[in-house]
Design a protein around this nucleic acid. Structure first.
Length: 292
DNA sequence: TTGTGTTTTATTGCCTCC
DNA sequence: GGAGGCAATAAAACACAA
């Protein structure tokens, strides 16, 4: 560790290589050498494998070199030196062009920068890692804004839905009130509540027909115990409260209406029915009104 | 000045590909 | 099996507040 490090010597303006602490036998010994000289092929000193890792790197051609005074310096340089802005600029430019290095390009770049090829490789490796991290952040931001937008759409739709539901309830009430006031609605029903279109959006609610028909005056509609089910048993557009409110009104209307109707039917009987009843009720043609 | 957090450079170990 | 890539990590360098 901490061996073969490059640093910039401000006094000479040269990139220098720090050799020391690289091997048990050299531990504690530090030395400097002129990198330019090294790169130019100064042969007496360094025989270095490019690859670090588990391999042992050889710094001296012979043990004698270890004791050669000219390579020592009392003042130990920094262990790690940051690259100069110029070096980084060139590396960045190369990275922009290509984020992976061909071996030739690596050597070429290393020479140009006065660095070891290994340093260039490491720089690219770290640069790729940084790029990846940034890319992940960008992707996260993108997904988050997309999620936020969808969520906001969803929330406004929920609000709109609530609004429409309360509108339905209030209109239903008005309708029933009108009916209670005595206005015959038989002819209006098909206009106001076309069965086909109504199918699309209503919970299925039923009134037991036999109950409705059983007596002249006392026959009250009874809500089927199993009835308050929605077609889609999951999310309801028609909360239980509203449903019960409506059913209470229907009960009143129906008990009023039974007396006078010709066939014992009113438009509400067409409206509130379960699919089961739609099939089971004998002799009765029941419509149904559903919300989707 | 010092403590602390962040960034950069370098190492290690594992994996894949040829 | 060697070369090269990547993830994880160490450690130096740097930035900055107190």
């Amino acid at each position: 560790m901490d061996s073969g490090r490059l640093y910039f010597d401000p006094s000479s303006g040269n990139n220098m290589l720090f050799l020391g602490n690289c091997d048990p036998i050299f531990r504690g010994i530090g030395m400097k050498l002129d990198l330019e000289g090294f790169l130019a092929g100064a042969k007496s000193v360094v025989n270095m494998e490019e690859t670090y890792g588990s391999k042992r790197r050889l710094f001296f051609s012979s043990p004698e070199d270890l004791y050669d005074e000219e390579y020592y310096d009392e003042q130990l340089p920094e262990k790690k030196r940051r690259l100069t802005p110029e070096q980084i600029h060139l590396l960045e430019k190369s990275f922009e062009a290509e984020n992976k290095l061909e071996p030739e390009k690596k050597t070429q770049l290393a020479k140009k920068l006065g660095l070891q090829p290994r340093q260039v490789a490491v720089w690219f490796q770290n640069r790729r890692a940084r790029w990846k991290t940034k890319q992940l952040e960008r992707d996260y931001d993108l997904l988050k804004s997309s999620y936020d937008s969808l969520r906001s759409d969803y929330e406004s739709m929920v609000k709109e839905n609530e609004k429409l539901k309360s509108e339905v309830v209030s209109l239903t009430e008005k309708l029933l009130t009108k009916e209670l006031a005595g206005a015959p609605l038989q002819n209006e029903k098909s206009d106001q509540l076309p069965v086909d279109s109504a199918h699309v959006a209503a919970p299925q609610i039923s009134v037991k027909v036999e109950d409705r028909l059983s007596s002249g005056s006392g026959g009250s509609a009874v809500v089927d115990e199993d009835c308050p089910q929605l077609l889609d048993s999951g999310d309801s557009y028609f909360p239980n409260d509203n449903y019960q409110e409506c059913m209470a009104l229907i009960e009143i209307v129906q008990s009023e209406e039974d007396d006078g109707s010709e066939d014992g039917r009113n438009y509400l009987s067409d409206v509130f029915v379960t699919p089961e009843q739609h099939h089971h009720e004998e002799g009765e043609v029941l419509g149904w009104w559903g919300w989707s």
